[in-house]
Amino acid sequence: MAQHAHSEIIGMQPEANWITRAPTLKRKAILLAKVQDEAGHGLYLYAAAETLGVTRQTLYELLLAGKQKYSSIFNYPTLSWADIGAIGWLVDGAAIVNQVPLCRCSYGPYARAMIRICKEESFHQRQGYEILYTLSHGTPAQKAMAQDAVDRWWYPSLAMFGPPDTESTHSERSMAWKIKRFGNDELRQRFVDMCVPQAAVLDLTIPDPALRWNADRGGYDFTPPDYAELMAVVRGNGPCNRQRMAHRRQAYEDGAWVREAAAAYAAKRREPVHA
């Protein structure tokens, strides 16, 4: 839960990168709303984690000290506006496939937070898909930009489902406790099967020459993501790990005076008034 909460908070960074450069006022307002939602998701999940007895402050410190992690996907850079589309379609799409089963997981506070989050995520995915559709039906240069974004985000999105079940360290326990209800590989397959027809409508190509329908299995065969790369990013060697953490620390420190001022004001108001 803590890792999930941290992911929502760090996940604001790659997208916030494009708020000031959104192509229209409408897109800018939408992106602002989306980033605000991510902050909200982080807060629902922190509150859920706190029901197990940990304080918010401890969770913050564990993230800032690098002792708790966040999803590796946010360690990839957003190089073009089309990346905002690809994140919405693929990254949020993968997150939805991961998260929908969590709405019925065994821990009530987590499940309730996930129900609220899943409702909001579907707007995120659709706005991303709309961005890509607009680009892919625009000029050749816009279409190329959309294709480039999909090329870069496809495999990191597949990696979001984690290592194969045979190598996943926590899966067995999470499944036994009914926190996780489906294996990593099963969810990854579900995601690929959903994306193929969606990519066709976009008129964009999924960057996998091995991708083809397997009638025997009733699913698509595909090239798995590079799990060695995933593990390297998890260990801190992705393109943006240091930048993301530095930015989070800076934001935390820059906000300190606001928290102190609000606390001082509240304390002053609580003091009895002497005539």
Partner: peptide
């Protein structure tokens, strides 16, 4: 609906 932290 849920909870949150705030100074006042």
């Amino acid at each position: 609906v849920g909870s949150l932290h705030a100074p006042d």
